[in-house]
C-alpha cells in the first residue's frame, strides 16, 4: 500500500481537486483506492456526496476506540472508498496532541487497512503543524500542486527546510511537485513555468490547466472524469497520474 498526501501550506491551490481526480483515475485503472479527507472543511467528502460525520467523532478514532474500518464509506465508484471528514475534528492538532504517540497515529490507523487498499490519498488541510508532521510520517510521497506565482518557489523552500531539519520525521518522503491551475493565456504563467522548471527540474511534466470543468466539480459533485470523460480536464489528470505512477 502506498500513501500519497496532497499537500501545500496554502489553500485554494488544487489539493482537493487533485486528490479526488487522481483517486478516481487510479481506481478505474484497477487500483484499490482509499481517500481520507483530513480537512475539516470536508471538500473531498462533499465531492463524493458523503455526509460528513464520523460516529463518535475523530477523537474516538485517534484515541483508538474506533477503528478506521468502521468509518470507511464506499463512494459511488468501484474500487474507491472514502474516510469522510468530521466537522467535530475541527482541530486535528489538538486531538493528536492528546494521543500518546501523536506522530505515529495516522500511520498506525492506516496499517489496519493496508491489506485492503493499494493506494491511499490523504487530502490535507493547509499549514505545517503536528497534523502535517503525522502526515509526513505516514506518507510515501507528497503531491504538491503549485500555482505559478513568483512566491510559489517559497513553498518548496519551506518544505525543503522542513525535510532537512526533521530527518527523523520525514524518513523517506518523495516530494512530487507539479503545476496546478495554469492559465496559458497569462504571459506571467508561461514565463514562470519556464523559470520555475529551471530552479526545480524535478517538477513533473504533466500540468493541470485552469479549466472551468474542474471548477464545476462542486456543481456535479463528481470527479471530472465521471461527468466529463475524455475532456481536456479528464485527460490532464490521467496524464498526471500516469507520470506519478511511473515515479512511485
Amino acid at each position: 500500500m502506498k500513501v500519497l498526501a496532497t499537500y501545500n501550506i496554502k489553500g485554494g491551490v488544487g489539493k482537493t481537486a487533485t486528490a479526488v481526480n487522481l483517486a478516481y483515475e487510479a481506481a478505474i485503472r484497477g487500483h484499490r483506492v482509499l481517500v481520507w479527507d483530513l480537512d475539516p472543511q470536508g471538500a473531498a467528502t462533499f465531492y463524493f456526496r458523503i455526509r460528513p460525520k464520523v460516529k463518535g467523532g475523530g477523537k474516538a478514532l485517534v484515541s483508538g476506540r474506533r477503528v478506521l474500518d468502521e468509518i470507511i464509506k464506499a463512494s459511488d465508484y468501484e474500487n474507491l472508498d472514502v474516510v469522510p471528514a468530521d466537522f467535530s475534528m475541527r482541530n486535528l492538532d489538538l486531538l493528536l496532541e492528546g494521543s500518546k504517540k501523536p506522530l505515529a497515529t495516522l500511520r498506525r490507523l492506516l496499517k489496519s487497512v493496508a491489506h485492503e487498499y493499494d493506494l491511499v490519498f490523504l487530502d490535507c488541510p493547509p499549514s505545517i503543524s503536528l497534523a502535517s508532521e503525522s502526515v509526513f510520517r505516514a506518507a510515501d510521497a507528497l503531491l504538491v500542486p503549485v500555482i505559478p506565482t513568483t512566491l510559489s518557489i517559497r513553498t518548496f523552500e519551506q518544505l525543503d527546510r522542513f525535510v532537512e531539519e526533521n530527518p527523523e520525521v520525514v524518513e523517506e518522503l518523495d516530494v512530487i511537485g507539479f503545476f496546478s491551475m495554469v492559465d496559458r493565456r497569462k504571459r506571467l504563467h508561461r514565463e514562470l513555468l519556464v523559470d520555475l522548471r529551471q530552479v526545480r527540474p524535478d517538477l513533473l511534466d504533466a500540468v493541470i490547466p485552469a479549466i472551468t470543468d474542474i471548477e464545476r466539480m462542486g456543481v456535479h459533485r463528481q470527479p471530472v472524469a465521471a461527468f466529463a470523460p475524455g475532456t481536456r480536464s479528464a485527460r490532464a489528470y490521467s496524464a498526471l497520474w500516469t507520470e506519478i505512477n511511473e515515479r512511485l
Binding site: 478505474i28 485503472r29 484497477g30 487500483h31 468501484e78 474500487n79 493499494d118
Partner: peptide, 26 residues
Amino acid sequence: ERLVATAPLDAPTAPRFASDLPPWPG
C-alpha cells in the same frame, strides 16, 4: 462478485497470453 478492474481494448482482439493483459495492478 466484485468488479476488480476494467480496461478499454485498443486492439479488436482479446488478449491471449498473460503478457497481453492490460497494465492492471492485479
